[in-house]
Design a protein around this nucleic acid. Structure first.
Length: 1003
RNA sequence: GCCGAGGUGGUGAAAUGGCAGACACGCCAGCUUUAGGAGCUGGUGCUCGCAAGGGCGUGCGGGUUCAAAUCCCGCCCUCGGCACCA
């Protein structure tokens, strides 16, 4: 008898599949009239590391392959391919360590991965293989970045970033992990420090609402959907303004307000603003400037200098041309004033073609910023982002020269010409805005806390008495993110702002203002109203610093006594001690109180924009150019790709490696043609992987990122198998990019992945995660050599529930091997009969058929079909094992039944089943044979084992007709010897009969 | 601390209200073999018993039900994620 020679069999079929391009799906058939329905299967494309694959990696691939082969047998045209996520840090670090070019290393790694992946007999369409480090691929990554840039979704901004001193690169928040209470780099575990740097960001925050709401149509694990939601972190609440009262300030400010060109104190918001200031008892001087229709610098500046009072309490405000006057005034002052506030300003003639105004000539457009800055305490610049008269860029330039605080806003009317402009009032009258989800607790807000990063602290506009102390606290707080933030000793710290009081807009009480690092600068308004009675953190803080705790929410109303709180009550309830809102329930009071104090509804998200800059070499060059004249300019589409050059030295030295390559850096500006420098940063590899699944649909397209018809034919992905570790970022980024390309008209769908499942991690035999450092890594190469791909596949699918993780059992694969050997032997032993039956089909009527086997076969078909669809591969295989026992026990097995068995097994053990398929005389691939159907009549048994219970305990079993009635069953049960022994003549009080299952006699 | 997943033999597990432990690994006994991580047959939750047979048993404690691994309440433990998000 021939031995089961898996080596020969597997080699033979793997070669044939490859040569025949057996699993390539041409696009032609897809668009013709007789197209098969499409099915797109996707798995995370691997990151080809130097270590190669371990036995955990293929689990997801094998599952996908099982599913793909099943779908083909179901008549689907299956798109199923593989590629390489080849850019990235580990490869670069490895290359540096061994002194090689990262490209060479990546190529070698890919070669090794490809060899390993091919051992498993996976039915990929190899014509669609992609590689993110291939210029043909990353050309389109760059193109995508430029598209985002053109739509204002890629921008550069200074931001506090996590800097890994070892990898010398910026890390995304999500690449920073906590270890022993420290923030460390996810990859190298070095401690992360904070650094201020200009970075490229992608504006994923523009898509938050859609990223949230579209989650509800997806067939994804609930937990994953929840994690996406939590990551986005939507909170609905209110923004409430607390004015900061000057009473305790040393002196009251006096304002000088300058209007703009053709303006007057009767126009725009001036009347309203004057009223608001008067209401607050604040002094101000707002003159009508001379000759406003045709102003000259001379005349206006001297007018202001002559009539206005300038001393250290003066706050100078200028709007539009008034900003220019203000700056000219500041150039001439002998002593400094408190501060300057500028709205809609400019520093050169606003070259709008519509106007040719006299002031373009009557003003000198040169400023002595050094002098100006020496004459002012604080600076605030307001820019109307939708300004249609003076470009916002002018105001921004002004801000860059002056520094201070920049307030980006959208004016009620363009260029701050509304009847009311609250942002201007806000700037003049210091106030603190807070975000809260619990406006119902406003009456219990007994102090405010602002974050160390809060803008009010930057220029000491409030004249904080203990400013030195506050400053040193801020310094300490900044370092704290770098230093240990011990998990347990997260004790609250803070400093009260001396001489500063805020007004609680509900109670009108003066309350203290603190700075504390438990309030984050990056979330909400960077400030909170503290309600210690109803917030755990505020409670803890109030206890520590002995601040008042006022209970304003009671779970029940009327509250008989308000209990003394030993901890915060954070639930909702009814209001107490809240003036006219007493007795109202929290839900209603939230909005009522917000309205009462002039607050507004506000939605906040935890998610931040996606930082994509990396100061490393092995990635996609960001296709931007820095020109001295034109600023940042995008590379023209026709000049893509911007190729990643080979370098002498790949090590990062505080600046990106590409910055050291003159050949790369030096270029010409795409706009003016002058000398310019290329952006030396590279893109986060999450950008590469955020669109790879689209490229599979048209991988070789040199003209476009993909053909619209093709991408819309194959997409969206019908089944995506992915590790749970990618549950947040990769999916969020991919969904964002898909929505963007949808909005740009490239895609007809808005969600890329319809059905998503996670593959459970295979752990080492020690139960720990497999890793080189733990020494528990199992390499599949030797296993394949010893047992073959089919045994390996069957074992990995049999180990346990697919979505759970299991430890690797070195013995386990033996069971799979034995199973396959038994099949092989069964075939060899019955070969003659089977072939004889094929040769003379009339033989199939010869010999008794085992009905039990027929039934079992039908049941198995049903079960295995359901199991594959539900990814319950372990029970599918146990069903096959059981079915084999039935065959083995029979005297005769008909070839039609055996072939059904082969087909059921084929997705799991494709080589062996194909070999036997061929031996049975088939010339085609079993992969494209039709999946067997079961006989519904055979699913139901004619008899069953009736369980007889007495008082719910099993006392006997008896074979019974499937359709037995309750009366018959009762009679049958009562007739049993064992039963009567238990009943001892007592009649059952109650009889429960479950058809086809049991009868329970209750006495 | 919060959120999520989970806890069943020596091990991976099956059973989603109806005979707990299917199917495997391991182990034990026997057969076979020059040999074996080979094959075949039988056994294998714990416990009392010579046996027939009985009792106990799905992390722990309660509850619902004729009947609970499965549903409900409270607690414990393991793994994963988040981490002062107002």
């Amino acid at each position: 008898m021939a031995k089961y020679d898996f080596k020969k069999i597997e080699k033979k079929w793997q070669k044939r599949w490859l040569e025949d391009k057996a699993f390539s799906v041409g696009d032609g058939s897809s668009f013709g009239g007789k197209a098969k329905p499409k099915f797109y299967q996707l798995e995370t494309f691997p990151y080809p590391s130097a270590e190669g694959l371990h036995v955990g990696h293929p689990k997801g691939y094998i599952a996908e392959d099982v599913h793909a082969r099943y779908m083909r047998m179901r008549g689907k045209e299956v798109l199923y391919s593989i590629g390489w996520d080849a850019f990235g840090l580990p490869t670069e670090n490895y290359a540096i360590r061994v002194g090689k070019n990262p490209k060479e290393v990546a190529e070698a790694n890919i070669k090794n991965f490809k060899r390993q992946v091919q051992m498993f007999g996976l039915s990929y369409d190899w014509d669609r293989e992609i590689n993110t480090s291939d210029p043909e691929y990353y050309k389109w990554t760059q193109w995508l970045f430029l598209e985002l840039y053109k739509k204002g979704l890629a921008y550069r901004a200074k931001a506090k970033v996590n800097w890994c001193p070892s990898d010398m690169t910026v890390l995304a928040n999500e690449q920073v992990v906590q270890k022993d209470g420290k923030n460390v780099c996810e990859r190298c575990k070095s401690e992360v420090v904070q650094k201020d740097m200009a970075q490229w960001f992608l504006k994923i925050t523009d898509y938050v609402e859609r990223l949230l709401s579209d989650l509800k149509n997806l067939d994804w694990p609930e937990a994953t959907i929840k994690r996406q939601k939590d990551w986005i972190g939507k909170s609905e609440g209110a923004e409430i303004r607390f004015e900061v009262k000057g009473e305790r300030l040393e002196v009251k400010p006096n304002f000088v307000l300058l209007h703009g060109f053709t303006g007057s104190t009767r126009k725009n918001y001036f009347p309203w603003l004057s009223g608001e200031l008067r209401k607050r008892g604040l002094d101000f001087y707002a003159p009508d400037l001379p000759n406003t229709e045709s102003p000259t610098e001379e005349e206006q500046v001297s007018f202001v200098l002559k009539n206005a009072k300038f001393d250290r309490n003066t706050i100078l405000f200028g709007h539009s041309l008034g900003t220019v006057v203000a700056m000219k005034v500041l150039e001439k002052l002998e002593q400094p004033i408190a501060g300057v506030i500028l709205a809609g300003g400019f520093i050169r003639p606003p070259s709008t073609r519509l106007h040719n105004r006299n002031y373009e000539k009557t003003f000198t457009w040169k400023f002595d910023f050094k002098k100006i800055k020496s004459n002012i305490g604080f600076v605030k610049v307001l820019v109307d982002e939708k300004d249609d008269r003076v470009l916002p860029s002018q105001t921004l330039e002004l801000y860059e020269n002056l520094g201070g605080e920049l307030i980006k806003t959208v004016a009620n009317r363009g260029h701050f010409c509304g009847v009311e402009e609250p942002k201007i009032l806000d700037a003049l009258v210091p106030s603190i805005r807070v975000f809260t989800t619990r406006a119902d607790t406003l009456f219990g807000a007994t102090y405010l806390v602002i974050s160390p990063e809060h803008k009010l602290l930057e220029n000491n506009e409030l004249r904080i008495r203990n400013y030195e102390e506050v400053k040193s606290y801020i310094e300490k707080a900044k370092k704290k993110t770098e230093l240990e933030r011990m998990m347990e000793t997260k004790e609250k710290t803070g400093v009260e702002l001396g001489g500063v009081k805020a007004i609680n807009p509900a109670t009108k009480e003066e309350i203290p203002v603190w700075v504390a690092d438990y309030v984050l600068g990056s979330y909400g308004a960077g400030a909170i109203m503290a309600v210690p009675a109803h917030d755990e953190r505020d409670f803890e803080f109030a206890k520590k610093f002995d601040l008042p705790i006022r209970m304003v929410i009671c779970p029940h109303y009327p509250a008989k006594t308000c209990p003394v709180l030993d901890k915060a009550y954070i639930g909702e309830g009814h209001l107490v001690d809240s003036g006219k809102f007493d007795g109202m329930d929290s839900g209603k009071a939230k909005w009522e109180i917000t309205k009462e104090v002039g607050g507004e509804k506000k939605v906040q998200y935890k998610i931040r924009d996606w930082s994509v800059s990396r100061q490393r070499y092995w990635g996609v060059p960001i296709p931007m150019v820095h020109c001295v004249k034109c600023g940042i300019q995008p590379v023209a589409d026709k000049d893509l790709p911007v190729l990643l050059p080979d370098l002498e030295d790949y090590r990062p030295k505080g600046k990106p490696p590409l910055a050291s390559s003159e050949k790369f850096i030096k270029t010409n500006c795409p706009k003016c043609g002058g000398k310019a420098e290329r952006e030396p940063e590279t893109l986060d590899t999450f950008v590469d992987s955020s669109w790879y699944y689209l490229r599979y649909t048209d991988p070789k397209n040199a003209e476009e990122i993909f053909d619209k018809k093709k991408v819309n034919h194959w997409m969206p992905v019908d089944l995506y198998v992915i590790g749970a570790e990618h549950a947040v970022l990769h999916l969020l980024y991919s969904r964002f990019i898909t929505k963007f390309l949808h909005d740009e008209g490239y895609l007809k769908f808005t969600e890329p992945f319809l059905k998503l499942r996670h593959v459970g991690l295979i752990r080492g035999s020690d139960g720990q995660k497999m890793s080189k450092s733990r020494g528990n890594v199992v390499n599949p190469d030797t296993l394949i050599k010893e047992f073959g791909a089919d045994s390996f596949r069957v074992y990995e699918m049999f180990m346990g529930p697919f979505e759970d993780g299991q430890p690797w059992d070195p013995q386990g694969i033996l069971g799979a091997e034995r199973f396959l050997k038994r099949i092989h032997r069964f075939f060899e032993e019955n070969k003659e009969d089977l072939l004889a039956e094929i040769a003379s089909p009339h033989l199939s009527s010869v010999g008794p058929e085992n009905v039990a086997t027929k039934r079992q076969l039908s049941k198995s078909i049903k079960k295995i079909t359901e199991d594959i669809l539900g990814l319950h591969f372990n029970t599918a295989i146990s069903t096959l094992m059981t079915l084999l026992y039935y065959f083995e026990a029979d005297n005769i097995t008909h070839v039609t039944d055996f072939e059904k068995f082969l087909k059921l097994l084929h997705p799991f053990a494709p080589h062996m089943t194909q070999e036997i398929w061929e031996a049975l005389g088939h010339k085609d691939y079993i992969t494209f044979a039709e999946w067997p159907e079961y006989d519904p009549k055979l699913i139901k048994d004619e008899t069953f084992t009736l369980v007889v219970q007495i008082n719910g305990r099993v006392r006997d079993t008896v074979e019974a007709e499937a359709e037995i009635s309750q009366a018959e069953a009762e009679k049958l049960a009562l007739g049993r010897e064992k039963v009567s022994a238990y009943l001892k003549g007592v009649k059952p009080k109650k009889v429960i009969f479950v058809p086809g299952r049991l009868i329970n006699l209750v006495v």
